[in-house]
Design a protein around this nucleic acid. Structure first.
Lengths: 169, 169
DNA sequence: TTGGAAAGTCAACAAGGCTGACTTAAAACC
DNA sequence: GGTTTTAAGTCAGCCTTGTTGACTTTCCAA
């Protein structure tokens, strides 16, 4: 297989896709993801919580009343892994677990006021960075950013991403 | 603080930056990063290696002869953490560590043929996904994608990202 | 020649993934 | 009504990848 730049570029209808360009994109993802998680990580360090707790808080906030099974599917982790995180959040009074009314096997998850406070401080920080990045890149860039990211997801992730509240495109 | 949609949108010269939009961007990063790492992860599972090994191989490939200290700065991990990864790669004959000529304290890292083979299979998979995403999103989107990601990085990460071989913009 | 930087090593630990086995309760099925 | 399936939770144990702290060896440079 030929991995030189000419290998993909000359035979390709989209000439801009050199391996060089692709490598830059890959590295951009790597470095940007670090920035993306840096602010919440900073807030959480020192507390007993980590990135896993942040993710749980985010998706419970986004979809109040979601079930444990739902959350498992979204986060893509095992029940045991999530349970550890969820247990500490419930014990500390950040998350409330309510027995389902229609189906009593299910537990519906909600943030308490305290949980909502932490979630807000985390997402404020993350949104601030995202907002700054969007502003710096300009309106046109935002659409492209989202398009590429959506195309990069696995099928199942894309479905989860697109589901729930559909909003203005 | 007001976190409703109107809180940021009405007083803002860039009207598209609603909290809703920002949340979508945040979730896009989360789901896309999973897709981004999925293919290499699949290749590495079963081998004794993980994502940390992939990262080391990538940056040694990109900058042959880089020193350990250099690599530490790029990867943003501790010496001990990298050392464990590097040791196994060297023991398995994927990476070669050469004593520096000018400064014999330094070790310069190179991929062996075997190491280059693995690196190639990993980056082939990752590039294929990136290429598909770029194609699906179209030429205009790629610029926007990169602009937003670059703006999202920390200062130090951005410098590292922009340094080394500068290529066609 | 001495101080300090670069590299490596050892020990111990934590977060957050994983598998496998098992319980409980409730729903769904036949 | 009895059986099977499902949702949740738990226990035990493992792995990877990150961390800190203490220490040694090498060797450059002031």
């Amino acid at each position: 297989m030929d991995h030189s730049k000419t290998g993909t570029s000359h035979s390709d209808s989209l000439l801009f896709l050199t391996d060089e360009q692709l490598r830059k994109g890959i590295e951009a993802m790597f470095f940007a993801y670090r920035g993306f998680t840096a602010d919440p990580d900073r807030i959480l360090e020192g507390m007993d919580y980590g990135r896993a707790h942040h993710r749980a808080l985010h998706f419970i906030h986004r979809s109040p009343g979601t079930t444990v099974n739902n959350l498992l599917a979204i986060l893509g982790v095992t029940k045991q892994s999530l349970n550890r995180v969820l247990r500490s959040l419930i014990e500390d009074g950040l998350v409330e677990s309510r027995v389902g009314r229609a189906d009593k096997r299910e537990r519906h998850l909600h943030l308490t006021e305290k949980g909502a406070d932490l979630e807000r401080s985390l997402s404020d920080a993350q949104r601030a960075r995202m907002r700054a990045a969007y502003r710096a890149a300009g309106p046109g860039a935002v659409q492209g950013f989202r398009h590429v990211l959506e195309a990069m997801m696995d099928e199942s992730a894309r479905k989860q991403y697109l589901s729930l509240k559909e909003n203005s495109p």
